[in-house]
Design a protein around this nucleic acid. Structure first.
Lengths: 248, 248
DNA sequence: CGTTGGGTTGATCGACCTCAATAAAAGTGG
DNA sequence: CCACTTTTATTGAGGTCGATCAACCCAACG
């Protein structure tokens, strides 16, 4: 059986993620949610021909900070963590990537962060150059990409507020609410169960906290019956309470 | 005489900033540094016809968070602070805007942050719709805008590292180095004097610190002869020391 | 089984915050 | 130009939130 940590990975493809058919766009579960949503059928198969299917196991690395950025990725299933390391080992996770997310918005020479898989992961991989050339012929795709980048920028600024001006409890609550919203886009059911494919350490490195503090805040919220801690996730029992903390 | 806090405002236009001539693009000091650098002479005057000169005094507001975003701006002189407020009054400054900076990258329905002038400020103001339409006819401008947004995103992620994983002293050092780099792009002289048009409170709200801590860290650095505190700025005495702290 | 990695919990510590006083600078009105 | 107020900056004393250090639990796995 699969590791518990991947139990919630959604959306899982019903077809084998390695077969060519599964990565073909018309069967892609996240097409409408990703950059591909901006493309017509003809353009889609054009893009499809540029893509190479990528399949990684948990903890495998997609790319590393400061490396030449040779690829861009569109995640089709699984999740990843994006992070920067300081010379002395301190780590800041700048984001978690979920299915439908595009990695390589920056189109910069070198990667500004590292990325590795939290769970088994599949993605469409493109050569950065080929993708950039394709982009030059598709202004509406560029527009889509730009709107994604704008959205990411806005999320990054929200994260600045969280990191700079919120308490530990508020940080954890904001994290849960933010993640819930992102899962909700992906899953048809508006679940109150939030999959947490990342470790407590990862959450801490995302929120500027230690593992212990994350653990303590989660148990506190659980003790107050605001959440229920379940294997590889949490269930929101008192959504209003958590939302209140998050936007305080 | 001008207020000391604006003593360093660069680049000041030699012509009156209110006259039509002064905002005309061929005399614009920051043209090559801003989005306008992506445009040919003909396109430039086309864009110029869409622009309205804006002139604000210190502390005057450009736009507010959650308002409908009706304009985008290109700052030609002076500086501004961009911030989000929490319901209880806590504030996070998400960035400082300097001459050449473009506000409105997001092209979102509503502003995701507020902006007000730190010093007297001039800008080219565009109707968001008119600008967006213009953008549709100029793919290379969109590309420029996207590359700016990418760069902003990268800066935002760097700021996350600073907010989440650095000590107070490192934060202040990183702030000085980051600002120094931005001023350096603008001024021809590679000055070691860094203008600080913002208050200590602003710096604190940018770095996730209190005024007192910012003040203490600056005095500590000054006591160690790493910097010299001058009116409305600091002079770097030991650049290597500050850089070391900043990238640690 | 023993080992390993992740998670929780407790005790203690310290970096930064809070509160308070003072100083310095900038605006204001006569 | 000078009193006066207001804003900004600095400095000190003391408190606190989250970090650190350490022990322990548990599930997965070879």
């Amino acid at each position: 059986m699969a590791s518990p940590r991947e139990a919630f990975s959604v959306p899982a493809l019903s077809l084998c993620p390695n077969s060519k058919a599964a990565v073909h766009c018309d069967q892609c579960r996240v097409r409408s949610l990703s950059i591909c949503g901006a493309l017509e059928s003809g353009e889609l198969s054009e893009l499809d021909r540029l893509s190479r299917p990528l399949s990684l196991g948990a903890r495998e690395t997609m790319f590393e900070q400061d490396e030449l950025a040779e690829s861009v990725f569109n995640i089709t299933s699984g999740s990843a963590r994006l992070y920067r390391l300081l010379p002395d080992g301190r780590r800041q996770i700048v984001g978690f990537a979920l299915p439908g997310d595009f990695l390589g918005l920056a189109l910069t020479e070198r990667n500004t962060f590292s990325a590795d898989a939290l769970t088994p992961l599949t993605a469409c991989q493109f050569s950065r150059n080929a993708f950039s050339d394709f982009l030059d012929t598709k202004p509406h795709l560029l527009r889509k990409l730009h709107s994604l980048a704008s959205h990411e920028l806005s999320l990054a600024q929200e994260q600045m507020v969280i990191l700079g001006r919120r308490t530990a409890e508020e940080k954890v609550a904001a994290f849960l609410i933010g993640l819930r919203k992102r899962w909700a886009r992906l899953s048809t059911s508006s679940s109150v169960t939030i999959p947490l494919p990342m470790t407590r350490q990862d959450i801490g490195d995302f929120l500027g906290l230690t593992v212990e503090t994350v653990s303590r805040m989660l148990t506190r919220l659980a003790r107050e019956k605001a959440i229920l801690i379940v294997p590889d996730g949490v269930r929101l029992l008192d959504v209003a309470r958590i939302e209140g903390l998050a936007e305080m």
